[in-house]
Amino acid sequence: WVPTKREEKYGVAFYNYDARGADELSLQIGDTVHILETYEGWYRGYTLRKKSKKGIFPASYIHLKE
Rank of each mutant, 00 (worst) to 15 (best):
W1L: 08
W1M: 07
W1I: 07
V2G: 08
V2P: 08
P3V: 05
P3S: 06
P3G: 06
P3T: 07
K5T: 13
K5H: 11
R6A: 13
E7M: 11
E7W: 14
E8W: 11
E8H: 14
E8C: 14
E8G: 11
K9F: 09
Y10C: 14
Y10F: 11
Y10H: 10
Y10A: 04
G11H: 03
G11E: 03
V12Y: 08
V12F: 08
V12M: 06
V12C: 13
A13C: 12
A13D: 02
A13V: 12
A13G: 02
A13Y: 04
F14K: 15
F14G: 07
Y15Q: 15
Y15E: 15
N16D: 10
N16T: 07
N16Y: 06
N16E: 08
Y17S: 02
Y17K: 00
Y17F: 09
D18V: 14
A19Q: 01
A19D: 02
R20I: 09
R20L: 08
R20D: 05
R20A: 09
R20T: 09
G21P: 01
G21N: 15
G21Y: 07
G21I: 05
G21C: 13
G21Q: 09
G21M: 08
A22L: 09
A22D: 13
D23A: 08
D23K: 06
D23N: 11
E24G: 03
E24V: 03
E24C: 06
L25M: 04
L25C: 04
S26V: 03
S26G: 04
S26D: 09
S26C: 06
L27H: 00
L27S: 02
Q28Y: 07
Q28T: 11
I29Q: 07
G30F: 03
G30E: 01
G30H: 03
G30I: 03
G30C: 09
D31M: 06
T32P: 07
T32G: 08
T32K: 12
T32L: 15
V33D: 01
V33P: 00
V33H: 02
V33F: 01
V33M: 03
H34V: 15
H34M: 14
I35K: 00
I35G: 01
I35Q: 00
I35D: 00
L36W: 03
L36M: 09
L36P: 00
E37F: 08
E37H: 07
E37Q: 07
Y39S: 13
E40V: 07
E40G: 13
E40M: 14
G41Q: 06
G41K: 06
G41S: 06
G41Y: 05
G41P: 00
G41D: 08
W42T: 00
W42H: 01
Y43W: 02
Y43T: 00
R44Q: 05
R44K: 10
R44V: 07
R44E: 05
R44H: 06
G45L: 05
Y46N: 06
Y46W: 06
T47I: 15
T47Q: 09
L48S: 09
L48N: 10
L48W: 07
L48M: 12
R49I: 09
R49H: 13
R49P: 13
R49V: 09
R49C: 15
K50L: 13
K50Q: 14
K50V: 11
K51G: 09
S52L: 08
S52V: 07
K53R: 11
K53I: 12
K53N: 09
K53F: 08
G55R: 01
I56E: 02
I56N: 04
I56D: 01
F57Y: 01
F57S: 01
P58G: 03
P58I: 12
A59D: 03
A59E: 04
A59I: 09
A59W: 04
S60W: 07
Y61S: 10
Y61Q: 05
Y61I: 15
Y61A: 14
I62Y: 01
I62A: 00
H63S: 10
L64A: 02
K65C: 15
K65P: 08
K65T: 14
K65E: 11
E66G: 13
E66D: 12
E66M: 13
E66Q: 12
